[in-house]
C-alpha cells in the first residue's frame, strides 16, 4: 500500500531539478554552468566536511537546503563526508567560539593536503554580529587559513555552491603560505 502511494507520488512529482517556473530557471542555468566548471577544474568528486565553529545554526539551514532535490548536489559530484580525513574542502560556519577553537584547528590538521577552507556566512567571514569577545575569536581566518569567503546571513544555496567551486579553482601552493 505504502509502495503504491510512494510510486504514485514520485510519478506525479517528476524531476524538480529541472524546474519549469521562470524564477527557478535562473538557478538551473547557473547550476549547469557550474557543473561543467567543476568537472573541468577538479575532474573528480569533491568531498566537503562541514564544521560548525559556533554558528547560530542559520547557515546550517542553507547547507541542508543545498542537499535538497532542487540542487542535486550528488549529481554535480559533490558530497558531504563524515570525517575530515576524506575531505577536500572544509566548510566552516559561524564565528569561532573559544570553546571550539581547538576542535577546529584539529579538524584542519586532520584534513589531508591539498585542502581548501571555505568560510560560509558573515560570521565566518568577519565575525559578524558576534564579533570578538571573551567567548568568540571572530572570523575563521583568525584561527586557520581561509581560501574563500562567502558573505551573506546566511548565504543562499546558489551562492554557497558558487563559493565552494570558487575554492577548488584557486591555484594556491600549500605550505608556502
Amino acid at each position: 500500500m505504502a509502495t503504491h502511494l510512494i510510486l504514485r507520488k514520485i510519478l506525479k512529482t517528476g524531476r524538480v531539478t529541472e524546474p519549469a517556473p521562470p524564477a527557478n530557471a535562473a538557478y538551473r542555468v547557473r547550476l549547469q554552468a557550474l557543473q561543467a566548471e567543476l568537472y573541468e577544474v577538479f575532474g573528480r568528486a569533491l568531498t566537503i566536511r562541514h564544521v560548525d565553529a559556533g554558528s547560530c545554526n542559520g547557515c546550517e539551514l542553507e547547507i541542508h537546503a543545498l542537499n535538497g532535490p532542487h540542487y542535486n548536489l550528488e549529481g554535480l559530484g559533490i558530497k558531504f563526508a563524515a570525517s575530515p580525513r576524506h575531505a577536500d574542502v572544509l566548510l566552516v560556519t559561524g564565528p569561532v567560539s573559544r570553546h571550539l577553537e581547538t576542535a577546529l584547528k584539529r579538524t584542519y590538521e586532520a584534513t589531508p593536503e591539498p585542502k581548501w577552507v571555505v568560510a560560509m556566512g558573515d560570521c565566518a567571514c568577519t565575525g559578524g554580529i558576534f564579533g570578538e569577545s571573551y567567548a568568540s575569536r571572530g572570523r575563521v581566518a583568525n584561527v586557520i587559513p581561509v581560501d574563500v569567503e562567502i558573505p551573506g546571513c546566511p548565504p543562499d544555496p546558489v551562492r554557497l555552491l558558487e563559493g565552494i567551486l570558487a575554492a577548488v579553482k584557486i591555484d594556491r601552493s600549500h605550505g608556502a603560505s
Binding site: 547560530c56 545554526n57 558576534f130 571573551y134
Partner: peptide, 28 residues
C-alpha cells in the same frame, strides 16, 4: 561549545541592533 557571549554582546547595543542579535540566538 557554541557559547559566543551573546548576552554580553547585547549590552550597550541600541534597540534595533539588539533585534538583529536576538534573531541570531538560534537562526532556525
Amino acid at each position: 561549545y557554541t557559547h559566543k557571549g551573546i548576552e554580553k554582546r547585547f549590552e550597550g547595543m541600541d534597540l534595533s541592533l539588539g533585534a538583529r542579535l536576538a534573531g541570531r540566538v538560534s537562526g532556525d
